[in-house]
């Protein structure tokens, strides 16, 4: 009787014994906890949450594409982040870069920062390049010299300005306006020659007297015929001159315009050169990405195959599954007595 009382008053936890299934469940719960901890550790490691940092500064003309948290790279690896942006006294933007202490060894004296705004649309990539790798480490708080690329927006605006400038100069309209003047000049020359040929006018009366007038008239008539023939040639040439002569006659304006255009030419050439260089970089980057695509596809395929194999292994792992490979003895017809 007393024993029964003792049993009933005993704490239930002391009576617990775990069967196999409970142990298996416990094992998986514990495994899940371990995996969760593992994920946290990996996450902390990847995000450099508790890592010391060294601050450097760069001064850029525009903060376009740079935000707090923008990634900073060196030798192609992530070395830090943009921590803050502020206005510098020289009308520039002062960008504070926090470099992980472990990556500080990649920032040497003489290092320059390249702010590349053409790598990704809307965000800039800040890359620090150290020219001499044997140089001493750059002291914390230093300001790095910086090279900036224009943003895609700036480039498009530049191209639009070029087109606008050409339009503003109104060159074509001006050439078109000169053409009637040239035509009028040629008509006048034709009239003068005709009056000389007939001996009329101030010039004919002053030069020729009555005696030689007739002889001269013959000569002049001959000359007039020649000139008439020449007129035909000139009229043919007129069409050419309509196109060419006005431009030459208006050389003054042209020279003026060209001088204005030539002033901007070196700048345009430089911009064009920059555009080509950037286009080349962009194409190289795109090409690199395209080159990586087959590799990514192969990796994805391998991963899927591995996953499939792991799943198969797990399926065949007792007691997770009762799956069994088929016995080859099933492939043989059972012995049969005589056939009718």
């Amino acid at each position: 009787m007393n024993n029964q009382t003792d049993k009933s008053t005993e704490q239930y936890v002391h009576q617990l014994s775990y069967n196999y299934r409970e142990r298996l469940v416990g094992f998986f719960v514990f495994l899940g906890f371990i995996l969760f901890l593992g994920f946290i550790v990996v996450s902390v490691k990847n995000q450099h949450l508790f890592e010391k940092r060294v601050t450097f500064y760069i001064e850029v003309n525009s903060s376009d594409g740079i935000t707090q948290g923008s990634i900073v790279t060196a030798l192609g690896t992530e070395v830090g982040l943009v921590s803050s942006l502020s206005l510098a006294p020289n009308h520039k933007v002062r960008v504070a870069i926090e470099v992980y202490e472990e990556q500080h060894r990649l920032i040497r004296v003489g290092a320059t920062a390249l702010v590349n705004r053409l790598t990704n649309i809307g965000s800039a990539q800040i890359e620090i390049a150290s020219s001499i790798i044997d140089a001493p480490l750059l002291e914390a708080g230093s300001t790095l010299p910086v090279e900036e690329t224009p943003s895609l927006n700036d480039l498009l605006l530049g191209i639009a300005n070029l087109i606008q400038t050409a339009n503003n100069k109104d060159l074509f309209n001006k050439v078109e306006g000169i053409l009637p003047k040239v035509e009028e000049t040629l008509t006048n020359i034709h009239g003068i020659i005709a009056q000389i040929a007939t001996g009329h006018g101030v010039l004919g009366a002053a030069v020729f007297d009555q005696g030689v007038e007739r002889e001269l008239k013959v000569v002049v008539r001959s000359g007039a015929e020649i000139l008439s023939e020449a007129e035909g040639i000139i009229s043919v040439a007129k069409k050419r001159l309509v196109q060419l002569e006005p431009i030459l006659s208006d050389a003054k304006y042209m020279t003026h315009d060209l001088r204005g255009a030539s002033e901007a030419l070196p700048e345009m050439v430089q911009e064009l050169h920059a555009i080509i260089a950037q286009a080349k970089i962009a194409l190289t980057l795109i090409n690199g990405e395209l080159y990586e695509i087959p590799g990514v596809a192969i990796d994805a395929k391998r991963t899927l195959t591995k996953t499939d194999q792991i799943l198969e292994s797990v399926q065949e792992l007792w007691p997770l599954s009762k799956k069994r490979s088929k016995s080859t003895s099933n492939q043989l017809i059972a012995p049969h007595s005589s056939y009718d």
Binding site: E312, S313, Q331
Partner: peptide
Amino acid sequence: FMLIFVGCGGNSVNKPALLSSAESDVNEAM
């Protein structure tokens, strides 16, 4: 735990496609 993980991640032996096809034919024939 490590051994269990290694066991799970190990390469399973896959049957050749021709062998699977032959076994499938035998099953249909049976």
